[in-house]
Design a protein around this nucleic acid. Structure first.
Lengths: 119, 119
DNA sequence: CTAAACCTTCACGTTAATGTCAGAGTCAAC
DNA sequence: GTTGACTCTGACATTAACGTGAAGGTTTAG
């Protein structure tokens, strides 16, 4: 498929897809005309890229993670623990924020409950 | 305290503190000279802001949830009954933020598990 | 009283991940 | 063999969350 169809199937803009290629996240074939040609697996790849980006990872980090993600047929690159560390740190940062917000919500619940009882 | 001390006590740059004020996250008093004057509770507020920012929330999102983040030692202040609806809405916004973060953390957990399995 | 340290408001610079637009080539259909 | 949809490569614009001075007031220690 060409870039327009991949864009429609993923909801990601053509500009973003070209940017992902520029960053080494995608490596589409080229027709003699220069047109990019993507494979079906690229649809899943783009979705994974989106998940990681919205999780707060940079394209540079994703470029290291992607080869480690298991559905690339047979290619499994060696893992650097340093990278796993980064992922764990990111997860923990998110966890801390969740805890903060949860505590706040609990306090808010108490206030709401007290207010209802008082009135 | 003035901006320099708050910066030292939080590890956040003065520029960032002024930016937070610009975004409505902090509202320090002003001396006649124009100098900003912060209270002790602002130290905790800045730490919360940092936690939420590094978790991927925007200043616009934080400005919505921050006013509801009451301090633990700070017992229930008297609240107008007419504001309960607003409090419930705020609590729901916090809940939505928690859900978003939980989803991205779950994605990260999956990726981390896959990487461990690959190695 | 004066120097050092601190603070103020502009205002332009930076990085990441795009948006947008221009000018030009390509492909499928009629 | 021309129309119209699609794609190409630049290249400048944008947003967020700051960094980095410039030029100039303020506060405090001696």
């Amino acid at each position: 498929m060409r870039i327009g169809e991949l864009s429609r199937r993923t909801g990601v803009s053509e500009r973003a897809l070209r940017y992902y290629e520029e960053q080494g996240l995608l490596r589409p074939e080229r027709r003699p005309s220069g047109y990019r040609v993507y494979r079906d697996v690229d649809v899943a790849a783009v979705r994974r890229i989106r998940v990681l980006l919205t999780a707060g990872l940079s394209t540079a980090q994703i470029v290291e993670v992607l080869p480690c993600m298991v559905d690339d047929d047979d290619l499994l690159a060696p893992i650097c623990p340093e990278l796993v560390d980064e992922l764990v740190k990111q997860r923990d940062r998110i966890g801390a924020a969740i805890d903060e917000l949860a505590a706040t919500r609990a306090n808010l619940d108490t206030i709401i409950a007290n207010e209802r009882r008082a009135s």
